[in-house]
């Protein structure tokens, strides 16, 4: 196989490589950007819950309206997402329910409802169980692509506009309250953003893998970056790299595109975790053993 066949040809056979890469990038970038703030606020697992409950939201709207119109779909999923995050916070604040358990209880129950409704009363080509679980990047529909094309820039724009608030609320919610920032509003806006981004990317990446698109870029960036805007930049770079390399892998070996993207993202994270210049596990271990050697040499001399 020549490099030309490997790297160029996939783009020339029909439009699906273009469409798939575009869809995956449009799904990955807003997820990565929002993920940075969720990660910093220690809301990673709430994000996991929100991506799961996109399913019952979508199914409920489909059952009520009988169609897959994007706007009601987004509103419905955002409503179920708000309901879920309210239920989780309410449960977690009670005596007797542990906060991590609260997350698990709420989203599994809602997800179970979604799956049962899906298997008993929904007949629609675009949401079947396979798609819910894995997504379908390469077979993305025009409607979904269009939806992503609107939602992705919108989410990024909102983050850019609310940059200072988001940064302060993520870093020090207490101070943000003191300064009179609308902390609760920022919190729910962030949750709403995650719901919207998840629903828009639902057909492309499914309900379960979405969490990888949210957390893994942020976690990688956090190991490498010391400043917020650098962190967001690295997260986006991580997302785009994963998409590109993942798409190629999927095409070369005829594998699930969303799965490949997630695996590449995971590998990048592992590399950062082990070998990051300052905070990598291997690098610190090497540094420490070097320091120990010096120390023992000094004590032997003394």
């Amino acid at each position: 196989m020549s490099p030309h066949e490997l790297f160029i040809e996939p783009w020339t056979i029909g439009a699906w490589m273009w469409r798939g890469t575009l869809a995956a990038s449009l799904a990955a970038v807003p997820c990565a950007v929002l993920g940075v703030f969720l990660y910093l606020r220690r809301l990673s697992l709430i994000a996991d819950a929100l991506t799961h409950v996109a399913l019952p939201g979508i199914v409920a709207v489909f059952l009520m309206t009988g169609s897959m119109e994007p706007l009601p779909m987004l509103l419905g999923a955002a409503a179920v997402g708000a309901l879920a995050s309210y239920a989780i916070e309410n449960l977690a604040s009670r005596d007797g329910v542990r906060s991590d358990a609260a997350i698990g209880i709420v989203f599994t129950a809602l997800f179970a409802v979604g799956v049962i409704l899906l298997s008993t009363s929904v007949q629609n080509a675009h949401i079947d169980t396979q798609c819910v679980l894995f997504g379908d990047v390469l077979g993305i529909s025009d409607e979904s692509l269009l939806l992503l094309g609107v939602v992705a820039p919108l989410v990024c724009l909102c983050v850019a506009l609310g940059w200072r608030w988001l940064g302060l609320v993520s870093f020090d919610p207490g101070l943000a309250v003191n300064l009179g920032l609308p902390v609760a509003f920022v919190h729910y806006a962030l949750m709403g953003g995650v719901s919207v981004a998840t629903v828009a990317s639902f057909e492309a990446i499914g309900a379960i893998l979405a969490i990888a698109f949210i957390i893994v870029p942020a976690a990688t960036a956090h190991i490498l970056a010391d400043r917020l805007h650098v962190m967001v930049g690295i997260a986006v770079a991580h997302a785009l790299t994963s998409v590109l390399v993942g798409m190629y892998t999927a095409v070369w070996f005829d594998l699930s595109a969303s799965g490949c993207i997630v695996c590449v993202g995971g590998a990048l994270y592992a590399a950062a975790f082990l070998f990051a210049p300052r905070h990598g596990v291997m690098t610190t271990a090497l540094r420490r053993s070097a320091r120990r050697r010096v120390a023992s040499r000094i004590s032997r001399v003394a």
Binding site: D48, G259, V281
Partner: peptide, 25 residues
Amino acid sequence: GARSRPDASIGIVLSVFFGAGTVLL
């Protein structure tokens, strides 16, 4: 690890393992 968050670690492992499973499926 340095600079890691336990909650994020769970999400990372969950999704990356599941992603690998997807690929294998």
